[in-house]
Amino acid sequence: MATGGRRGAAAAPLLVAVAALLLGAAGHLYPGEVCPGMDIRNNLTRLHELENCSVIEGHLQILLMFKTRPEDFRDLSFPKLIMITDYLLLFRVYGLESLKDLFPNLTVIRGSRLFFNYALVIFEMVHLKELGLYNLMNITRGSVRIEKNNELCYLATIDWSRILDSVEDNYIVLNKDDNEECGDICPGTAKGKTNCPATVINGQFVERCWTHSHCQKVCPTICKSHGCTAEGLCCHSECLGNCSQPDDPTKCVACRNFYLDGRCVETCPPPYYHFQDWRCVNFSFCQDLHHKCKNSRRQGCHQYVIHNNKCIPECPSGYTMNSSNLLCTPCLGPCPKVCHLLEGEKTIDSVTSAQELRGCTVINGSLIINIRGGNNLAAELEANLGLIEEISGYLKIRRSYALVSLSFFRKLRLIRGETLEIGNYSFYALDNQNLRQLWDWSKHNLTITQGKLFFHYNPKLCLSEIHKMEEVSGTKGRQERNDIALKTNGDQASCENELLKFSYIRTSFDKI
């Protein structure tokens, strides 16, 4: 039985969820670079991206490699990797027998973001014989899940209580170790020597080791999670996991709180800001991140802002960003909400898709409305799209047979046209069989910064309504002859009103 693990408890099935942008060198404390989270699957090609990484700022997932063999891993080693800020997950990587050479110096898994409450997941690794993470000293947050690894031993010899604050939620089941077939031998045991430290858990006094050649490092209890030197002297209180010299914040392997210019500090002093819960960055760093993602459509890219001495992905609820200094300031009234469309555009074809934009005031991208039916549609669209004030790209209304009016965009005031449909149009209306009105132009103002209007096959939309939009939106004169079809717009509506004058002759039985 794995020490510190839980057996036999019912657990939810383990679901495996399925960018080499360097964020800056980590400095003297770390020998390499800070790398983003990685999802490495199918083959070993991307694994080489770990070569210079000291910190993975995010998670590391290595999974679904069915053609790899043990010899493929023999020359692979990433000794610079010290810390993973989120979680480490391995799933069905064939041929991998140990992690001792792959990650010989991995010391800390912070667990800032977890995989279903777990910071370390080893699942269905069919050839893994031992973990071998002999320098792993601290899992700051989260638990361990090690399950269905039929060859995995050296679990009962690990004292997880020396690595985690609590072992109650560890789930370590259905491994070879369960069948008591392992016969784990710690260093020196074969020669009758006791080389590794022994600890007591559940009444068992057991030597602690990761492999037959690597003991588990056990520091004096007084050192807590700070770690200790090879001689057993406690590291500085700002260290986490390990250090090369005692009581020196510049000799830590990793930091308990924050890293700044080669030393570990309790908090980031001005003019620095907390970033990702582990390091200090200056304003320029946060500003660069903001600008890199301002026009990016890459998933996970955030326009970072500053709030409460932190550089964070977005302002919290009730705050909006001051564009001059990136500071989050309290909103006066309802907060603006910028919604970034991942692929640059979004099609609204149902109430469900409209709900995804609920509360958005600025759309960074283009909207395509293609709704053919739905219950209580006008009210639903207004509830979900009615706060949109600005669209950076274009607005396209296409084959939306259920629409009679666009009044559900009740606050839309600006279409920038930074991206144009077919390279020309910022407003595009095609084949809307029941569209009769755009907006009530006596109450609604709309500016279209650039781009043209396109109207074709809107049989109940009168040309007068379209011409009014040209005047109000500032697009009059931009359109070419064929942009607004004269014969297919309003051709099934009563669009022309003329005053009919009647004269009559009164007659009676005795007068003409």
Rank of each mutant, 00 (worst) to 15 (best):
I146C: 03
H307S: 10
C209T: 03
V200W: 02
Y30P: 10
I139M: 05
N135A: 08
E147M: 02
P187E: 09
A156I: 10
D247H: 15
G58A: 00
Y118P: 02
Y319A: 07
K80E: 07
L332T: 03
P36K: 15
N325Q: 11
C268V: 00
V305Q: 03
F123N: 00
I185P: 10
N149R: 00
D72A: 03
G232H: 09
N257Q: 06
F78G: 00
L326C: 15
D178W: 06
V200Y: 05
S54Q: 13
S244T: 06
L120R: 01
C53Q: 00
N308T: 08
C293I: 09
V144N: 01
S323G: 14
E314T: 10
N52W: 10
G32N: 05
N150L: 13
C301N: 03
G318T: 02
S112T: 10
Q276D: 14
F115T: 01
I201M: 14
F123S: 01
I158K: 02
D101S: 14
T68Q: 11
E57G: 08
C223T: 00
H214W: 08
V218E: 10
Y118Q: 05
V265W: 11
L133S: 07
P330L: 04
K294T: 07
N202E: 07
G37A: 15
E151I: 10
T329Q: 15
L128H: 00
R298K: 07
Y304T: 12
C209Q: 00
P104R: 02
V121A: 05
T229P: 09
Q216H: 04
R297M: 07
V265D: 04
Q299V: 13
D159L: 08
N322S: 08
P246A: 06
L155V: 14
D248C: 00
C255E: 00
L131R: 00
C301D: 05
F205I: 07
E97F: 13
E130N: 13
H290S: 04
A119G: 06
L63F: 00
N325I: 05
P197I: 14
R41F: 00
I139H: 00
Y94N: 02
D169N: 11
P79F: 04
K292C: 07
N170C: 11
E147F: 01
L47V: 10
T157A: 07
S161E: 10
Y87N: 01
L106P: 01
N42K: 00
D178Y: 11
F285Q: 11
N257G: 06
T189A: 09
D178T: 09
D169C: 05
G318A: 08
Q245R: 12
S324L: 04
S54L: 08
F283Q: 10
T199C: 12
C331K: 05
P270C: 04
T189P: 06
N175Y: 02
S237L: 07
F123P: 04
Q61R: 15
H48F: 07
S77Q: 10
H214P: 03
I40Q: 01
I185Y: 15
T140C: 08
R298I: 07
N43W: 15
K217M: 14
R110P: 01
Q61L: 02
H28E: 06
L128F: 10
T250S: 12
C182A: 04
N202D: 09
D159N: 05
P246C: 10
C223Q: 02
K176D: 04
H214Y: 06
C243W: 00
S98Y: 02
E181T: 03
I122R: 01
P269Y: 05
T329I: 12
E51K: 03
R162G: 07
I109N: 00
K176V: 05
T107S: 12
K191P: 05
T221R: 15
T45M: 09
C235W: 05
G227A: 04
S324I: 01
W278R: 00
I146V: 15
C315N: 02
F103A: 00
P36W: 09
A119N: 02
S161A: 13
E181P: 09
P220C: 04
E207V: 13
Y154N: 05
I62W: 02
G132R: 00
C182L: 04
I62Y: 00
K148T: 00
A230H: 14
F258S: 10
A230L: 03
H48S: 12
D39T: 02
L102W: 02
L326F: 15
Y272M: 13
V108D: 15
V206Q: 15
V144F: 05
R41V: 00
V265E: 07
R297G: 08
V144L: 05
C335I: 04
E266V: 05
L60M: 05
I172H: 03
G241Q: 02
G241D: 01
L152T: 02
K80Q: 09
N42R: 00
C196R: 07
P336W: 05
K294Y: 15
N308P: 04
T68H: 02
D39K: 10
H212P: 13
P220V: 04
K217G: 02
Y94R: 06
G58M: 00
H127A: 06
T194N: 12
F78E: 00
L164S: 06
E49N: 14
C268W: 03
L260Q: 03
V265F: 08
E71N: 13
P220D: 05
G262T: 12
H291E: 11
C243F: 01
F115I: 00
R298M: 05
C255R: 00
K193M: 10
L60V: 05
Y304G: 03
S143G: 11
L233M: 11
D169Q: 13
I306N: 14
P197Y: 10
T85R: 12
E71H: 15
V218W: 12
G203E: 11
A198R: 12
P70H: 10
F283K: 13
C331W: 12
Y272A: 03
N242K: 06
I84C: 00
H290R: 07
Q299T: 07
R256E: 10
L63G: 00
G95K: 05
M65I: 07
E314Q: 04
D288A: 13
C235M: 02
